[in-house]
């Protein structure tokens, strides 16, 4: 980390369009220079899309500019943090993203994919709530895999109930990309309550599922 910060403090890269940082296992991420570097790069001043993937060995976030064409990934910042378990990944990612929060203000689309198989019981809803607060202007949230739905929907529901629309006031679309799986029981109920609460505060929220047959959200 110190090495990276030393390098970044010594270089100027006005033409940079893609950057990939990989951090090793550590508890505290105090990264002011990385934050300063990202915020002062014209290319990285404003991100519009974020994709966060939680694997069993690491968490990876990819931040992208506005999508002009399909699969337009010209301006990309990718951060990988090698650590586990999931609560540690969440905490580490929040710390790193917090160091360049200004660049996240225009984030409209957020994708969350939890691929860890052993996350059960190791993470509190409140930790997800705190994490989601980073994406205050997100209009579209996509949850990939049913694990992501199990983890994030209760946090969103709790937020909507406790603090009305304070946390994700711009949220309009919730996409569930769960490969044919659809929530049932308490989880389905939680999604229903989330929609109702948003409507009570004059915020319409559409929930759509990915349909494998038609290959589109329904």
């Amino acid at each position: 980390m110190t090495y990276l910060e030393d390098i970044l403090s010594l270089i100027e890269t006005p033409m940079l369009t893609k950057s990939y940082f990989c951090f090793f296992n550590q508890l505290v991420f105090d990264t002011p220079i990385i934050g300063h570097f990202i915020c002062h790069m014209e290319t990285f001043t404003t991100f519009h899309r974020a994709c966060m993937e939680f694997f069993s060995w690491a968490v990876v976030v990819t931040l992208l500019g506005q999508e002009v064409m399909a699969d337009d990934n010209r301006e990309t910042l990718r951060l990988e943090i090698s650590c586990k378990p999931l609560d540690w990944q969440l905490s580490a990612l929040a710390q790193v993203l917090n160091s360049f929060l200004y660049s996240l203000l225009a984030l409209e689309a957020v994708k969350i994919a939890v691929s860890c198989e052993d996350w059960q019981g190791e993470i509190e809803v409140i930790q997800w709530q705190e994490f989601l607060q980073l994406f205050i202007f997100a209009k579209k949230v996509t949850l990939v895999h049913k694990d992501s739905v199990w983890l994030v929907v209760p946090a969103l529901q709790e937020l909507a109930r406790e603090r009305a629309t304070e946390v994700l006031p711009a949220l309009q679309n919730l996409f569930l990309w769960t490969y044919g799986w659809q929530p049932s029981g308490p989880l389905k109920e939680a999604i229903g309550q989330l929609i109702t609460t948003q409507q009570l505060h004059s915020h319409s929220l559409t929930v759509q599922y990915w349909d494998n047959n038609s290959r589109k959200y329904i």
Partner: peptide, 21 residues
């Protein structure tokens, strides 16, 4: 870093830099 950074500044055509430990 103090050794490699001055070298980088002498590479005007450099497009990709990868440093990994």
């Amino acid at each position: 870093p103090k050794m490699i950074v001055p070298c980088l500044s002498m590479l005007p055509r450099l497009k990709s830099l990868f440093l990994g430990f």
